[in-house]
Amino acid sequence: MMAPAQQERLRGYLLGFVLALLLSLVPFACVHYQWLDRFPTMATIGICAVLQVLVHLRYFLHLRLSEAKERFWLLVFTLLLIGLMVGGSLWIMWDLTDRMMGH
């Protein structure tokens, strides 16, 4: 039998896994089944992506905003990297679209 602390840790990991799975399946289902128009689908993907990051930070990396200053700067750096990756990816996709469409 597991100790209460281990059970609580396992419960947190399982909850994080289920939330991450749902936040992955919702955008895939929206795109696959075309439930929404283009803009709402893109907004759903973006919102689920941000929530996915928060779930991973909370349940898997155990980061909370109420903790030490170092953790805050780690979160700021993480958000900066995510912004650079998302912004760079959008820039590349926009440029490829322009090149392929011949504008």
Results as ranks from 00 to 15, higher is better:
Met2Trp: 12
Ala3Leu: 13
Ala3Lys: 14
Gln6Tyr: 07
Gln6Arg: 10
Gln7Thr: 05
Glu8Lys: 12
Glu8His: 09
Glu8Phe: 06
Leu10Tyr: 11
Arg11Tyr: 09
Gly12Arg: 11
Gly12Asn: 15
Tyr13Met: 12
Tyr13Thr: 13
Tyr13Ser: 06
Leu14Thr: 00
Leu14Ile: 09
Leu15Glu: 04
Leu15Asp: 03
Leu15Arg: 09
Leu15Gln: 08
Gly16Leu: 00
Gly16Val: 01
Gly16Trp: 03
Phe17Ser: 09
Phe17Gln: 08
Val18Cys: 03
Val18His: 04
Leu19Met: 03
Leu19Glu: 01
Leu19Asp: 02
Ala20Arg: 01
Leu21Asp: 11
Leu21Ala: 12
Leu22Ile: 08
Leu22Tyr: 01
Ser24Glu: 11
Leu25Glu: 09
Val26Met: 01
Val26Leu: 10
Val26Arg: 00
Val26Trp: 01
Pro27Ala: 01
Pro27Gln: 02
Phe28Trp: 15
Phe28Cys: 11
Ala29Gln: 02
Ala29Val: 11
Val31Gly: 03
His32Asp: 11
His32Lys: 11
Gln34Trp: 00
Trp35Gln: 03
Phe39Glu: 15
Phe39Thr: 12
Ala43Ile: 06
Ala43Gly: 00
Thr44Cys: 07
Thr44Pro: 00
Gly46Thr: 05
Ile47Ala: 06
Ala49Pro: 00
Val50Ser: 02
Leu51Ser: 05
Gln52Ser: 09
Leu54Phe: 05
Leu54Arg: 09
Leu57Thr: 08
Leu57Ile: 03
Arg58Lys: 07
Arg58Gly: 00
Phe60Ser: 08
Phe60Gly: 03
Leu61Ser: 10
Leu61Ala: 12
Leu61His: 13
Leu63Phe: 11
Arg64Glu: 15
Leu65Asn: 04
Leu65Arg: 12
Leu65Cys: 09
Ser66Val: 10
Ser66Met: 01
Ser66Ala: 11
Ser66Thr: 12
Glu67Cys: 03
Glu67Val: 10
Ala68Thr: 11
Ala68Asp: 15
Lys69Leu: 11
Glu70Met: 13
Trp73Gln: 14
Leu74Met: 14
Leu74Val: 14
Val76Thr: 07
Phe77Ser: 13
Phe77Arg: 14
Leu80Ile: 15
Leu80His: 08
Leu81His: 08
Ile82Asn: 07
Gly83Ile: 02
Leu84Thr: 04
Gly88Ala: 05
Gly88Cys: 05
Ser89Ile: 06
Ser89Trp: 12
Leu90His: 04
Leu90Gly: 13
Leu90Cys: 09
Met93Val: 11
Asp95Ala: 10
Asp95Leu: 14
Leu96Cys: 04
Thr97Ala: 13
Asp98Leu: 15
Arg99Pro: 05
Met101Ser: 11
Gly102Arg: 02
